[in-house]
């Protein structure tokens, strides 16, 4: 400080260690992921991290911002990890690179860099990939297809064309397509493709990490609790109304990116609301949109779009939910 003023003492939290703890909290989910699906996801994460760092470095240079401080704040890494975890692990390398570049350069730095991006960068990267390469982005690894590191590397470099049966639809996707043929949902839900327990275990890993984040006070309870609660309530409600058309709540809570979103994606502070009431409303809105997109929309999974839409509403939400000041009526 050039004009030194109080306070002269400071707490120990910093952006870089908050982001570091977030990455730590992702590790249980990541390990379970690798246990069931091989090292494909690790390759994606490493590539996304490298891409993010390089992109961040060059864009900081171009914007004439001190690079050291901003490279070590770990925010680019968190974006890269979240994006890589959202992309199918059998996506070829260039998918990861394009997504990461888009997230860092356009979604983050074109809006002013750390602290100024109005959209969640990882979700923008994901949405762009989903729109541009739907065929790749909607194929998930078939868990029965256990493959070794060589295959994983080959898939990473050249895509999945050489390997038959490696990819299948995600449970959300499968159920959605089946329902389009006017079938009853109950038998569909009992099909093996709709009961991807391995994916559910990964979700459990993220839940563990999320509880760790709550415990270390990196995030507050508002967002994840309200998000999961809303999703639970809406899905239960629809299921009660027509069990033959709507899946029960466990299907929605355990599949797709629900857990990752609850604790890691919607909790991005920069693009989210700041007031407690605002957080509650924000989480509610996202859960509502996720359910609507999943059940009535054109895409099997709606987290990215729900988050991006809710991001747009953040300034309004913040404005309308200003808490009462001490002693004010």
């Amino acid at each position: 400080m050039i004009n030194l003023q109080s306070p002269f003492v400071q707490g120990s939290t910093s952006v870089s260690n908050i982001m570091f703890i977030v990455m730590l909290a992702l590790i249980p989910g990541l390990i379970i992921y690798m246990y069931f699906f091989g090292i494909g996801i690790l390759l994606n994460i490493i590539l996304a991290s490298i891409t993010a760092i390089i992109a961040e470095y060059f864009i900081l240079k171009i914007r004439k911002i001190p690079t050291k401080v901003f490279l070590t704040d770990n925010t680019a890494l968190v974006t890269a990890w979240l994006l890589a975890l959202s992309i199918p692990s059998i996506a070829p390398w260039w998918i990861t690179v394009i997504g990461t570049l888009f997230a860092i350069i356009i979604a983050k730095h074109f809006y002013g860099g750390i602290g100024s991006n109005i959209f969640n960068p990882a979700m923008i990267g994901y949405a762009i990939l989903l729109i541009s390469f739907p065929a790749i982005m909607t194929k998930w690894q078939n868990p029965s297809y256990l493959y070794d590191a060589n295959i994983a590397f080959s898939v990473f470099m050249h895509g999945i064309d050489n390997y038959d049966g490696i990819a299948s639809a995600t449970p959300l996707d499968y159920v959605k397509t089946e329902l389009l043929q006017n079938k009853n949902i109950l038998p569909i839900l009992n099909e093996p493709l709709a009961r991807l327990t391995q994916m559910q275990w990964v979700g459990f890993g993220f839940l563990l990490g999320g509880i760790f984040l709550l415990f270390t006070k990196i995030i507050t309870w508002h967002l994840p609790v309200i998000y999961l609660l809303t999703l639970f309530t809406i899905s239960s409600l629809f299921h009660l109304i027509d069990p033959s058309q709507f899946a029960p709540f466990q299907f929605h809570l355990l599949n797709g990116g629900t857990m990752l979103a609850a604790f890691f994606i919607i909790t991005d502070p920069v693009s989210g609301p700041t007031t407690p009431k605002g957080k509650i409303f924000f989480a509610f809105l996202i859960a509502l949109l996720v359910y609507l997109i999943r059940v009535f929309g054109g895409y099997p999974e709606g987290i990215a779009f729900a988050v991006i839409f809710a991001n747009i509403c953040v300034p309004l939400i913040d404005n309308l939910t200003q808490p009462k000041v001490f002693g004010h009526d």
Binding site: F70, I114, G115
Partner: peptide
């Protein structure tokens, strides 16, 4: 420590 932009963590 360096001053970074506000990340709106509240």
């Amino acid at each position: 420590k360096p001053v970074l932009p506000c990340i709106r963590c509240a």
